[in-house]
């Protein structure tokens, strides 16, 4: 893939719609299914991913000309791990309230496929500003996907939203379980594909 020709706003929208990490690229499914049991969880993990993605993308973009091509994956992993550790330590030290909520999510991110994949596909071939905006787009796209899944699963599984009681009863406890996560992801993927098809048909006609 040559250097991108997209504008900054296109890069952000691209992360949310065309190349949404979960619904289009189907990456990082494990956390998507495991963590998206509530909207709040989705939001917190989304914020954590957003920061790590942006920082790692910028770092790799800066050093992209020095990386030995044979060891690029270890370098990416190392970069991500460094940023995750740094964010984890800084949160624990200076924002204990936020750390209490987000600590567990931040540590999870080292193993996220989406971040490594974005570094490989985008950051190591593009300039720093473009990588920054791509990181923002991917982070927002991930956050959007997680919150959508969390919304459906929390509402149907526990009858609440953001911890507040909405329905007053628990319609389907099944939706809290990991298996239901796959159903939700599948349905969302179908919706994305359907919209794309409809859009293309309209464009042609």
């Amino acid at each position: 893939m040559p250097a991108t020709t997209k504008t900054n706003s296109q890069l952000v929208v691209n992360g949310i719609l065309n190349e949404n990490p979960i619904f289009r690229l189907a990456l990082s499914m494990c956390p998507a299914v495991g963590i998206s049991t509530t909207v709040m969880n989705g939001l917190l993990l989304g914020i954590a991913v957003l920061f790590v993605q942006v920082f790692s993308s910028c770092t790799i973009s800066v050093i992209r000309n020095f990386i030995h091509p044979k060891i690029r994956i270890p370098t990416y992993t190392l970069t991500i791990a460094t940023w995750v550790t740094v964010i984890d330590l800084v949160l624990a030290a200076y924002m204990p309230a936020a750390y209490k909520e987000m600590g567990i999510f931040v540590k999870l991110i080292v193993a996220f496929a989406i971040i490594t994949m974005r570094l490989e596909m985008f950051a190591c071939k593009n300039s720093v500003p473009a990588s920054f905006w791509d990181g923002v787009g991917m982070g927002l796209g991930f956050m959007f996907a997680m919150m959508t899944l969390g919304f459906v699963r929390e509402l149907l599984g526990m009858g609440t939203l953001f911890g507040y009681d909405i329905l007053g009863f628990k319609p389907l406890l099944f939706f809290v379980l990991p298996a239901a996560g796959f159903f939700c992801v599948g349905i969302m993927m179908a919706i994305y594909n359907y919209v794309e098809l409809a859009y293309n048909r309209k464009k042609k006609g």
Partner: peptide
């Protein structure tokens, strides 16, 4: 990487 992490750890350890 180790240097970066070590520095951050040293700075934040006390507050943590």
């Amino acid at each position: 990487a180790a240097f970066v992490m070590g520095t951050v750890f040293a700075i934040t350890d006390k507050a943590k």
